[in-house]
């Protein structure tokens, strides 16, 4: 399952964040997973609004795998990614924890940025094992296979 959101304003951040929350709830992510995904979404989407005047978020949700969020903007770019990823650095008034903080909430995190062209951040969060197993149990409870057809020839 996949889709995308255009993020221009603070309201867009909220609206898209709510959608992401709804999707992860439906897919059976744990509360902690959901809250951490929502928090990282808020951080990274806000960065696009504040630093680049907006951008686009693409999401990909795969069963038994996880959620990937790609944040892409055509803003000024991040001149020094290493510096931006270190705790405490910020070009605006925020605490500067948005980027490094989101990374800590991710299972996989990539930043590609070219000054003057824009920034692309990929955030990936696995669906945790016990959730996947719970889902398998659900399948087992249902009658999935028909064994009777093989017995007709006796």
């Amino acid at each position: 399952m996949n889709g995308s959101f255009d993020i221009i304003s603070e309201e867009d951040v909220l609206h898209a964040g709510n959608e992401i929350s709804r999707l992860t709830r439906e897919k059976g992510f744990s509360i902690l997973d959901r809250i951490q995904i929502r928090t990282a979404f808020s951080e990274l989407a806000r960065n696009m609004v504040v630093h680049a005047g907006g951008g686009k978020v693409q999401y990909t949700l795969l069963d038994d795998w996880g959620l990937q969020l790609v944040f892409e903007d055509h803003g000024p770019g991040i001149p020094d990614i290493g510096k931006a990823m270190s705790t405490g650095f910020s070009t605006t008034k925020s605490m500067g924890l948005g980027l490094p903080g989101s990374k800590k909430l991710a299972d996989d995190f990539h930043v590609v940025s070219k000054p003057g062209e824009g920034t692309k951040i990929t955030f990936f969060r696995k669906i945790r094992n016990d959730q996947v197993n719970n889902k398998n149990e659900g399948i087992n409870n249902g009658q999935r296979h028909d064994f009777s057809r093989g017995e007709r020839n006796g």
Binding site: I35, L97, P100, K104
Partner: peptide
């Protein structure tokens, strides 16, 4: 504060 929020904020390094 919800436990999950506390964990998230602490893990982010706040």
């Amino acid at each position: 504060m919800k436990p999950e929020i506390a964990i998230t904020l602490i893990q982010m390094g706040l």
